[in-house]
């Protein structure tokens, strides 16, 4: 295992993580393609993963990585289900535009 991370380096990683997260968020909010929206959520997962690993490295233990395993699990599950739903929605509406389904407001 390499040398544990310093706070200064940790801050860099956190900056990177935050930037990626916000880019993912903005992508989720602005893009109207359902698939890209889900892709953006994956990007947000990725940003969280970087923060996790960085914190784990700062503390010098493997818990951050273990958490990443769970994140991967959720991401995989989400991808499987969400993509199945996207395909079904596409079959139903012949479009991937998220606004097509805005009459589902409740």
């Amino acid at each position: 295992m390499t040398q544990p991370l310093s706070v200064l380096a940790l801050n860099h990683y956190l900056l990177l993580s935050g930037v990626l997260f916000v880019i993912g968020l903005i992508g989720f909010l602005t893009r109207r393609n359902l698939i890209i929206m889900f892709l953006c959520t994956e990007l947000m997962f990725q940003a969280a993963a970087i923060a996790m690993i960085a914190f784990g490295a700062y503390h010098g233990n493997a818990q951050g990585q273990v958490f990443l395993i769970f994140i991967l699990t959720i991401a995989a599950a989400e991808a499987a289900l969400a993509l199945a739903l996207v395909v079904m929605l596409y079959r139903r509406g012949s479009t991937l535009d998220a606004e097509t389904w805005s009459e589902l407001k409740g």
């Binding site: 989720f28 909010l29 109207r32 929206m37 998220a98 389904w101 805005s102 009459e103 589902l104």
Partner: peptide, 14 residues
């Protein structure tokens, strides 16, 4: 604001 658009809600949430 309750327009049924997912992103509108996402915006509010964020």
């Amino acid at each position: 604001l309750q327009n049924g658009r997912l992103q509108g809600y996402g915006l509010g949430m964020a």
